[in-house]
Design a protein around this nucleic acid. Sequence first.
RNA 1: GGAGGGGUGGCUGAGUGGUCGAAAGCACUGGUCUUGAAAACCAGCGUAGGUAACCCCUACCGUGGGUUCAAAUCCCACCCCCUCCGCCA
Length: 428
Amino acid sequence: MLDLKLLRQDAAAVAAALGKRGFAFDTKTFDALESRRKALQQETEALQNERNSKSKSIGKAKAAGQDIAPLLAEVSGLGDKLDNAKAEFERVQAELDAFLARVPNLPDRTVPEGLTEAENLELSRWGKLPDFNFTPKDHVDLGDDGRVDFEAAAKLSGARFVVLRGEIARLHRALTQFMLDVHTQEHGYTEVYVPYIVGAQALRGTGQLPKMEEDLFRVGFGEDGPAAFLIPTAEVPVTNLYRDRIIDEADLPIRHVAHTPCFRSEAGSYGRDTRGMIRQHQFDKVEIVQVVHPEHSWEALEALTGHAEAILKKLELPYRKVALCGGDLGFSSAKTYDLEVWLPGQDAYREISSCSNFLDFQARRMQARFRPQGGGKPDLVHTLNGSGLAVGRTLVAVMENYQDGDGSIHVPDVLRPYMGGQSVLVRS
RNA sequence: GGAGGGGUGGCUGAGUGGUCGAAAGCACUGGUCUUGAAAACCAGCGUAGGUAACCCCUACCGUGGGUUCAAAUCCCACCCCCUCCGCCA
């Protein structure tokens, strides 16, 4: 949610800034709703004032033993007038809220111009692309001995699911453990275990609702229970830990890491990435989240991105860092870096981490605030998060980059302690 | 699932339908005192909106309804927490 004051002061500037991401901000509708809201609010508050002060004088008169009948007559009819005014005010307020809930965050001025993925800006490359003296296979072929089994998963759950077996399943688990250990022991994150089912309020807080509802799996507690959803990312439960809370400034920054499955319906991506486990309805991710003082969020974004990069470096996976252009930015983000890992099987870089600074956009929706040291008014925190990393895609990257001509897969050095010391995984 | 108790400011916790946005304590801030600190004492101290700001006004005592001129207080529904019983990985 954007700052309402900013919108009132300079809706035109907001509209211009949102244009960078291809969002058409309807200044006319906003202005109309806002001036209507203002008039109605003043009207209802004046009526409330009248009722309150008259009620008080009734109380006083009664206490003084005076006849209150004339006062009661004065107040008759006021109630209905107030109810009508209030109902109208609430209707307009709700309309305004719904309008604002669909307005995305303002892109930072350093965000590259552009409306499509193609205009993202490459910032750096790391690592040497593997030089095979054979034609590299992709992870689907490398795992087709039954260790990566899409058919078994399809039988259980349909398309876009996978069953992993044996050493590949263990490698997947090893990657998760490794990532959690690095972030907790080297980067100062506190591990949290969180629910995988959340209510609508949490999803509104981080900005997945109302716009992204089609991409969520809805579950329920009974037929007419409250709406509940499978989490599309750990960002939702972890960031919302701070919803409606006032944190002591001394407790900032807060850094959390969580490993969770993520569930996405992938509505609208039919036909994309249908081969392999790049785009699944269910995948595991290790997510890092920071809640910081508003003055420090930009440096926190650089640090957090570095923490995600550190995993790729330790795994010796070649990658590049990209700044998303305005049009490719997520709804809540002011600026996002994507890390894209090299996949020999696709002969391409593919997204494996997305690191964003949301400034106070999520904090305002969530009412996540901090109390300044030495007292004073609570102020909104800034929130950030990044994948550190997407586990399924990392598994794909390890398989494809560490493959041998005979289809065996070498285990990256840093993972060996997690694999019982094993150094090569051979086809069965 | 059954029985009972409870949800009030950053925290603890009082509150008889009528100056109750709410006692008291803790925490915090400023001051007096002190070489300095602590203690003691004095004062201040909820959030948001009308609004850029003061005054002023409005809303907020788990959530949503209702009764009333007037609701933290009475009524209804729901949510959550605690204790006990039952069931259970």
